[in-house]
Amino acid sequence: MLETAHPIHKYLRSSKKFPHIWCAGCGSGIFMNALIRAIDRSGLAKDDIVLVSGIGCSSRLPIYVDFNTVHTTHGRALTFATGIKLANPALKVITIMGDGDAVSIGGNHFIHAARRNVEIASFIINNQIYGMTGGQCSPTTPHGVKTVSSPYGNAENNFDICALAEAAGASFVGRSTVYHTPLLDRLIDKALDKKGFSMVEVISQCVTHGSRWMGLNSPVDMMKWLKEHSLTVEKAKGLGETERKDKIIIGIMADLDRPTYNEEYDRFTR
């Protein structure tokens, strides 16, 4: 009985969709749990929340939870989210995307959603790999590593998603890993609360495919890796390029108050 009393159970869809598709040890579940807890804390009503995702392992998340949910096309979650927010500004719109989803195929939508400052709380589950399609390189896969689509080593440079979001004009930008759950909780709270476009990059582990380039086998080892490779924004400040290199900088990168797209559109048109 104790188990069914868990606060997240009232947000899970009971009608059909379990077990979920995620591999045991995937980071997506940690994020889902954190998101639900944050929604619970926020006091938002289920009916007022729209969860929009793209295509990928992490994008399956909305299917499992009891909100208005849209599992869209690969890379395009933010386009649907924009239409939803413009047509019904009363809805709380949240998007969940993978790294390939958000900054490869959906990269253009991402920068424009940030630029417009539409009030969307967006979360990018960055496992630095294409999980669903079998472990190919994504734009966030580290330079040099071997994947099934870079068998000789990845010749490309990887994106800093937070820097991209900040430069494009997002109102709130933060990064956490799925290891640092207290920080993750705080960032999700802030993102949900933000008037304007918010983006939280959630560094996660793909135990099935990411493990190959990391040379690690267990989810526990991968989470330890996330812990050891992370550095808070505050600590990173005094450090030089080389010391920051290959580190995951976690914390809040931007937190601004700017008029939202909806506010500006109304101001100009009404």
Binding site: T82, K85, H112
Partner: peptide, 26 residues
């Protein structure tokens, strides 16, 4: 109603579908 110039046509139809889900004829 509301109008938006999107970044491309993929985004345009995506936004139209999102808006339609809220009940707006789009």
């Amino acid at each position: 109603g509301s109008f938006i110039q999107m970044e491309d046509e993929i985004a345009s139809l995506g936004a139209v579908l999102g808006a339609s889900l809220t009940g707006a004829k789009s």
